[in-house]
Design a protein around this nucleic acid. Structure first.
Length: 327
RNA sequence: GGCCAGGUAGCUCAGUUGGUAGAGCAGCGGACUGAAAAUCCGCGUGUCGGCAGUUCGAUUCUGCCCCUGGCCA
């Protein structure tokens, strides 16, 4: 068992969408020897810039972000791939004598990084198509019934309408020949060799966050989100059920463009979807990840975060907007 | 000013042949292992516009009033 002091530091900056994570991360990046690692399931897509609130080119130039623009919007990413990518890039950053500052709002990715994932088979398009066909013919409750035959434990904890999880559980059984419940039980928690400092950004008042979400979605619309979706659809072969086009904002613009939902409702729907995302992220923070929470609207937030980081990793020598000392 | 149609949950509406009401959306809470910005689950007390009248009982019937929209002047 290694001692905490022997482990290299890593900072985790978690928060719901529109809580000011990026601004805080940039502030810290100006003052600490850190490199930014994105923890964001949407910013991995190339050419999806406006709707994912990706840092602009100048910002990326000044402060390189890792794990952004990794794949085409036609492709899928995953929590498992994130964990592998993050650990690889964290090792490089650490080897350079710098500190990984992970920042983003994809809470499952943080969990996967911190606790590891069981050894499960990768997603398989053919098997998924088979299960989709079964569901189309007989309904998801029939898939649930089938799962109950081969993996009663997993079937018991899944609702018969939870299409995504039912599909995954049955996929695992068909690929591995063993039930998901068994494979999960076999995997033990694998904590990576870092001294993690999990920090959370939350507004004291939810309504403040809602205000910021509306403001930011309007800004995205003004910045040309609709054009961005049009360009994506021209350049790539996309559909509404791809992970990239299920992202908040992109989905609502697409639905308006194709008349699936009234254009007049597009803005509201985008804002609602963003709020609901924020709510899910907050639930993760409160119930699972439990970082040290900082009010994202508090005065001198940067100083507070800086002091906390300095106390943890630099012997408490952060003050007046700068830090002294070495790692 | 007259006629008609409405005024029911934050919004859009349904409904009650008289026994004080329910959907969608929003909101709130929760779950979460290779799609997670995903997927799914749970939560519905609101002077049924106001005041009277009829009635054992009115959101429902009647009258008057107020408000909104449309048509006619």
């Amino acid at each position: 068992m290694e001692h905490k002091e022997t482990l290299p530091p890593a900072i985790l900056l978690m928060g719901p969408t529109a809580s000011g994570k990026t601004a805080a991360a940039l502030w810290l990046a100006e003052r600490f020897p850190v490199e930014l690692v994105s923890v964001d399931s949407a910013q991995v897509f190339r050419d999806m810039d406006i709707g994912t609130a990706k840092p602009d080119a100048a910002t990326q130039q000044a402060f390189p972000h890792h794990l952004i623009d990794l794949i085409s919007p036609e492709e899928s990413y995953s929590a498992a791939r994130f964990r592998a990518d993050a650990l690889a890039v964290m090792a490089k950053i650490t080897a350079r004598g710098r500190i990984p500052l992970l920042v983003g709002g994809t809470m499952l990715y943080y969990k996967a990084l911190l606790e590891g994932l069981a050894e499960l088979p990768q997603a398989n398009p053919e098997i998924r198509a088979e299960i989709d066909a079964l569901a189309a013919a007989h309904g998801w409750p029939a898939v649930h019934a089938e799962l109950a035959r081969v993996d009663p434990a997993t079937a018991a904890r899944l609702h018969s309408t939870d299409a995504q999880r039912l599909q995954r559980a049955l996929e695992i059984y068909r690929l591995a020949g063993r039930p998901m419940s068994e494979l999960l039980a076999a995997g033990e928690s694998q904590k990576p060799p870092y001294a993690f400092l999990p920090l959370g950004l939350l507004p004291a008042d939810r309504s403040v966050l809602h205000g910021r979400i509306a403001q930011r979605f309007d800004a995205m619309l003004h910045a040309g989100l609709e054009d961005e979706v049009s360009r994506l659809r021209r350049k790539y072969s996309l559909s509404l059920d791809l992970p990239s086009m299920r992202c908040v904002g992109y989905r609502q613009v697409w639905e308006a463009q194709d008349g699936i939902a009234p254009r007049a409702e597009m803005r509201d729907r985008g804002i609602y979807a963003t709020r609901q995302l924020a709510k899910r992220q907050i639930t993760w923070l409160a119930n699972t990840l439990k970082p040290e929470i900082f009010d994202c609207l508090a005065p001198k937030l940067g100083d507070r975060l800086g002091q906390r980081i300095a106390r943890e990793f630099f012997g408490g020598s952060f003050s007046a907007g700068g830090f002294q000392g070495k790692i």
